[in-house]
């Protein structure tokens, strides 16, 4: 939607589009380590049930996804794949970095093979701290992201600070 990206849409239409986008986030699960299981619990288990938030966790490929959750340790060997994944996603796209490893390297902050934070490779919208974060924390991150999407002006996208779940 070129108009959306240009930010030249009339206000009511923007609001309508934003609400629609907010409740139909297709999320790609980029599960890497321990956090992947908590992400699986949040997205796949009946107890946490992410679909009630209007998030659909089943895109077959990143090309169909609006949101990617990078959950777990990103290693230097994996980093090119993460970058490529992000480039494959269509705009507007959002990134949630889940867990200490993806945020900053976490317990492997001094390792020779771990990338110290996925934000070195791709821009991150929401940081969810924890090792691993509980599923509720991830859901909170998604809710906060939806809040942002609702009032988002495409023209000013990327100018805001990332959200940190606390």
């Amino acid at each position: 939607m070129g108009l959306v990206e240009n930010g030249k849409l009339p206000k009511p239409l923007t609001a309508l589009l934003n609400v629609s986008r907010k409740y139909s986030l297709w999320v790609y699960q980029w599960g890497l380590a321990c956090c992947a299981i908590e992400m699986g619990a949040a997205f796949g288990s009946p107890r946490y049930d992410v679909m009630r938030l209007g998030v659909i966790p089943f895109p077959a490929s990143p090309r169909q996804a609006d949101l990617v959750v990078v959950s777990g340790t990103v290693t230097d060997k994996m980093a090119p794949a993460v970058k490529r994944l992000y480039e494959q996603m269509p705009d507007p796209k959002y990134v949630i970095s889940m867990g200490s490893c993806a945020n900053c390297g976490g317990p492997y902050w001094d390792s020779y093979s771990v990338t110290k934070g996925v934000d070195q490779i791709i821009p991150v919208d929401v940081y969810v701290p924890g090792c691993p974060p509980r599923p509720e924390a991830l859901l909170e991150g998604i809710v906060l992201l939806q809040e942002r999407i609702r009032s988002e002006d495409m023209g000013e996208r990327r100018n805001g600070d990332p959200i940190v779940v606390s």
């Binding site: 890497l32 380590a33 777990g72 340790t73 290693t75 060997k77 994996m78 794949a81 492997y108 001094d110 390792s111 020779y112 093979s113 771990v114």
Partner: peptide, 14 residues
């Protein structure tokens, strides 16, 4: 393999 190699054996030494 190695996409999840975090260097445990080195990290334990410190």
């Amino acid at each position: 393999m190695g996409y999840m190699h975090r260097g445990y054996e080195k990290l334990t030494e410190v």
